[in-house]
Amino acid sequence: MTQNPRTQALTDAGVSIWLDDLSRQRLSSGNLQELVDTKNVVGVTTNPSIFQAAISGAEDYDEDIAALAKDGKDVDAVVEKLTTDDVRSAADLFEGVHTASHGIDGRVSIEVDPRLAHDTEETVAQAKRLHEVVGRDNLFVKIPATKAGLPAITAVIAEGISVNVTLIFSVDRYVEVIDAYLSGLEKAAASGKDLSSIHSVASFFVSRVDAEIDKRLEALGGEAETLRGSAGVANAQVAFGTYLESFGSERFEALQAQGANTQRALWASTGVKNPDYPDTLYVDRLVAEPTVNTMPEKTLDAVADHSEPAATLNAEIATSAQAVLERVAEAGVDLDDVFALLEREGVEKFEKAWEELLETVSASIDDVSA
Rank of each mutant, 00 (worst) to 15 (best):
A53M: 10
A100S: 11
P48G: 11
A331F: 12
V15W: 13
D210C: 07
G259S: 10
V209N: 03
L255Q: 06
G241H: 13
F51I: 12
V133C: 12
W18F: 13
G14L: 14
L300N: 01
A265L: 11
V36G: 03
G43P: 07
I198H: 04
V347S: 10
L68N: 05
A288F: 14
V272Q: 05
D366T: 15
I161L: 04
Y174M: 11
S29E: 01
T226P: 04
E80H: 06
G184K: 05
G248Q: 11
G57E: 02
T46P: 07
A13N: 13
A288G: 11
S16I: 09
K273G: 01
A323E: 15
E59A: 14
E289N: 15
E343F: 06
T146M: 05
K215D: 05
F240Q: 06
L335M: 07
R327S: 15
Q263I: 03
V42G: 05
A188F: 08
E345Y: 14
K273M: 08
G221R: 15
Q263D: 09
D64Y: 07
A91T: 03
A311D: 02
T99N: 00
S191F: 01
A257R: 08
Y174P: 03
R216N: 11
A67W: 06
S29K: 00
A340L: 04
V134R: 10
A117L: 10
A152E: 04
I55D: 08
L313R: 10
A288R: 14
V238M: 06
N293Q: 02
S89N: 09
I110V: 15
V328Y: 03
V209E: 06
D172Y: 02
A318R: 09
Q263H: 12
A91S: 05
K39G: 00
R129I: 03
V165F: 12
D336F: 08
L167A: 05
V272K: 00
F169H: 04
G346A: 08
F204P: 02
L150E: 00
A219C: 10
R6H: 09
E253T: 12
R26P: 04
S197Q: 07
W18R: 15
E348S: 15
H98Y: 09
S89Q: 11
W267A: 04
D301R: 01
E218H: 10
L32W: 01
L325F: 06
S207F: 03
S230V: 14
V133N: 03
D214G: 15
D71F: 05
L255D: 02
G103I: 09
I17V: 15
E326D: 09
R115M: 07
V324K: 11
A188P: 09
V97M: 05
A288Q: 15
A257H: 05
E218C: 01
D301A: 05
A155L: 07
R88G: 14
I365S: 04
A363T: 01
V41M: 02
R6N: 08
V272E: 00
N47Y: 15
I178K: 08
D179H: 12
G229D: 00
A211V: 08
S249L: 12
Y243C: 08
Q25E: 02
T360C: 06
A13D: 12
